[in-house]
């Protein structure tokens, strides 16, 4: 199995995971159209992360003209240029599938605000 582990490790990006479930993230995704290449930004709520190693994926949900759109991105894909955290969310679950059934204000995730004093104590 060592060979397979080495092959998978080669493809994994380092320090990609600087975000958590519930964060609003901006994903810069490269799109190849024939010869031209452009970057498309997909901004939404990080609902879930699945699998491990090179296969690790993230599900991002956004509302587009009143319709919910979800995309699954392979985290280590070379087509992802960068991932930006727009807003940190405070959630108590690892999978936020309940958001799908909520409408309006109920579909929001509270913002995580860390007090400086509490972090200093730790």
């Amino acid at each position: 199995m060592d060979v397979i582990k080495a092959i998978e490790l080669e493809q994994q990006k380092e320090n990609v995971e600087n975000f958590r479930i519930g964060d609003t993230v901006k994903i810069y995704f490269k799109i190849i159209e024939g010869q031209t290449e452009r970057v498309q930004i997909f901004e939404g709520l990080l609902l879930a992360m699945k699998n491990s190693g090179v296969r690790k994926t993230m599900t991002v949900r956004k509302m587009s003209y009143g319709v919910g759109v979800e995309r699954v991105f392979p985290m280590h894909s070379p087509r992802i240029e960068k991932i930006e955290v727009v807003r940190k969310g405070r959630v108590r679950r690892a999978k936020l599938y309940y958001i799908r059934d909520r409408v309006g204000k109920a579909a929001k995730v509270r913002e995580l605000i860390r007090k400086k004093s509490t972090t200093a104590k730790k």
């Binding site: 199995m1 060979v3 397979i4 092959i7 998978e8 493809q11 490269k30 190849i32 090179v54 296969r55 392979p74 280590h76 894909s77 070379p78 087509r79």
Partner: peptide, 13 residues
């Protein structure tokens, strides 16, 4: 040896 997944030159798993 076994199976796995790799990203090819187009970035497809």
């Amino acid at each position: 040896v076994g199976m796995t997944q790799v990203f090819d030159e187009r970035g497809i798993l």
